[in-house]
């Protein structure tokens, strides 16, 4: 399983979205490619339509215009997993059972799912908390459970909506490191919503900036797969500065 790139990506063409009862489009003219194995970050201020786009990609809502297609692996429907901003766990289920849920929904017995669940728990550092209940966990731990639950089916596409926004900075750094490692191990296509420049630069292979419901610009980030000491590197600081400048609209192609 490691080092294989999953077969599915997403292609959006001419996508627009207007919510019922609203007089303006929340999204317009979105052309977006999420190739298999890419880590795409949607970056932009609150209210620019990031969550709306993510929900369209997850097929939770329908676009008003345009179309969204899942590509690759034509023989089966691509498996899609969602990590919402709040770690919405079932409070009446243990950590193990929460992570087991997606497999249960597919009709897998607990015994048959055991290995997959434990692999997912280990990958997110939760192997010792399998029997805990959500109320006993910190915010960071709950988010780990939410991620473990998303990963348990080894999804083709992983959609994350500001998963770490509510966490303190240290926890967020740690989870960013771990998410990077998980992504490199399994290589799903990831669409990650954030309003943090730092997070976007650290994680992505492509940054997509949204403004007022449109794609403002896109930037490939080529730091390669190993990003363990990236935060201390000079080129990281340089790209961060570039992204910040672009977001302010102050970027000119001089450097």
């Amino acid at each position: 399983m490691p080092d294989t790139i999953h077969g599915a990506g997403i292609v959006a063409r001419g996508v627009g979205k207007r919510y019922a009862g609203r007089s303006v489009d929340t999204l317009s003219d979105i052309d977006l490619d999420v190739p298999a194995g890419a880590f795409v970050t949607l970056l932009g201020p609150s209210g620019c339509g990031k969550s709306t786009l993510l929900r369209l990609l997850a097929r939770l809502n329908r676009p008003t215009r345009g179309r969204i297609d899942y590509t690759g692996r034509a023989e089966h429907v691509p498996d899609c997993a969602l990590v919402p901003q709040e770690p919405t766990l079932l409070p009446w289920k243990s950590v193990f059972d929460n992570v087991y849920l997606p497999l249960k929904l597919r009709g897998q017995s607990k015994g048959a799912a055991r290995d997959a669940v434990f692999e997912s728990l280990c990958a997110t550092g939760l192997q010792d908390r399998a029997d805990a209940y959500p109320r006993e966990l910190s915010g960071g731990m709950k988010m780990r459970v939410s991620i473990a639950r998303a990963l348990v089916t080894d999804p083709d596409v992983l959609l994350m909506d500001e998963p770490f926004a509510a966490l303190d900075e240290l926890t967020r750094h740690r989870l960013n490191d771990d998410l990077r490692a998980l992504y490199e191990r399994r290589r799903p296509a990831v669409v990650f919503v954030t309003h943090s420049v730092e997070e976007a630069v650290f994680l992505s292979t492509t940054i997509v900036a949204l403004r007022d419901g449109r794609i403002d610009w896109q930037l490939p980030v080529d730091f390669g797969p190993d990003r363990t000491d990236l935060r201390e590197r000079k080129d990281y600081a340089r790209v961060r500065a570039e992204v910040s400048a672009r977001l302010r609209g102050a970027w000119t192609d001089r450097s």
Partner: peptide
């Protein structure tokens, strides 16, 4: 969010 999770 939980409903969305079940839908996805």
């Amino acid at each position: 969010d939980l409903h969305d999770l079940f839908t996805v």
